[in-house]
Amino acid sequence: MKVEPVTMLEIGKTLVSLDLIEKQFHCDLEKCHGACCVIGESGAPLEPAEKEKIADVYPLVRQFMTTEGIKAVDEQGWYVVDEDGDTVTPLMNNGACAYIYEDNGITFCAIEKAWMEGLIDFRKPVSCHLYPVRITEYEAYDAVNYEKNKICKAALKKGKNEQVQLYKFLKDALIRKYGEKWYNELEMNARVWEKHKHEAQ
């Protein structure tokens, strides 16, 4: 009888890809220059509550945005619906997210800038906080997957050099999304999985 390899972990109402445990990852902004805010076919996915949140904090975020970004929001609104029917952040004409600014050639999030300055209590869309992990919501569960992207090649190299697993790098974001109890269970599953792999070698 053929045994199918395990590729997902079931934690609560989520199915978590083993990539979160096995991939090593650490953002390297000096190499990627914040490309995840610039490159993509659509804006950052927004959760229902985040639409109103962005509208609320926008007056304080606006001061950190580019002229082009402000124009995009003025013309499109705080959020838009893309071709897939998903609610996302608006994009500028060059394809970059409207809510960005640049500092020394690196692209940053203007929403997070306002949060770091203590002006707002909303850090940024959770989908951005979680990247390169993407969540697909189904009726019975959420699929939590690693999204392979060539713009993160340097992050994989840095993660390997520093021996940082993806789920550990994203600890704050994962706790924000699913809570500390969920994260602790993921961490426990990771230890069991690593022990199992070591014993199998």
Rank of each mutant, 00 (worst) to 15 (best):
E162I: 06
W193P: 05
I54H: 08
R123D: 14
S127V: 09
K51R: 12
L18I: 10
I39F: 09
K177W: 03
V88A: 01
L18W: 01
A35N: 02
T89G: 02
V126M: 08
G40C: 08
M8K: 13
K2M: 11
T7G: 13
R191N: 11
C37D: 09
M1T: 10
Q201P: 09
C32L: 06
F25A: 03
D19H: 14
E4A: 15
D19K: 13
Q201V: 14
V6Y: 07
S127F: 09
P48M: 07
T89Y: 01
E83C: 14
E10K: 09
E162Y: 07
L29P: 00
Y101S: 03
E180T: 10
E83Y: 14
P48N: 08
K181E: 14
A72Q: 00
D142N: 14
C152P: 00
Q76L: 11
G77W: 05
G95I: 01
V81P: 03
D142S: 12
A114S: 08
G159W: 00
Q76F: 04
S42E: 11
M8G: 06
A140W: 12
F25N: 03
K171W: 02
D172G: 06
I54L: 10
H196N: 14
I106R: 00
C109Q: 06
D172I: 11
D86Y: 07
Y167M: 01
T66F: 00
M1E: 10
E47S: 09
N149E: 15
Y138E: 14
